[in-house]
Design a protein around this nucleic acid. Sequence first.
DNA 1: GCCAACGTTGGC
DNA 2: GCCAACGTTGGC
Length: 151
Amino acid sequence: MWLVKTEPDTFSIQDLQRAHIAPWDGVRNYQARNFIRDQMQLNDPVLIYHSSCKQPAIVGLAKVHSPPFEDLSAKDPNSPYYDAKAAQAAQPRWYAIELQFCEIWQPISLNILKQTLTDPDFVLLRQGHRLSVMPVPQRSWQHIQKLRQSC
DNA sequence: GCCAACGTTGGC
DNA sequence: GCCAACGTTGGC
């Protein structure tokens, strides 16, 4: 069970719904990269979270639709995610996966999550967290399902 | 727009 | 290998 962040101005859950299947690329953080490359499994559920916007919130559900693959946007000089060093490296540095859209939810705001969840293992709730791809602990996942039913 | 928290870079 | 400087993230 995972959570990925996205800025809705750049790529929203509505964009994912339209695309149905979309590459989740442009991740340029090693810890997040490792989750994508080493731990994400086909069909794993993935919460979609809107960040850097008016109401930061969990806004829906997707699932992992492909094995990890090299993120070639790192080697494309025209991409906003271009990484000159990665482009020159012999070994792939950055990885992506494909996500498949599942559902749009009534937003579960960060505020509500903070008020009702105290799970220390849930990275989203930690102060100053910057991970854009993170695991969701079982008990937080269950709690989120309950919050969803009460919306 | 502000600014604290964070990850990365690069000089030493 | 340390750590200061820097750029970025992201909530408010």
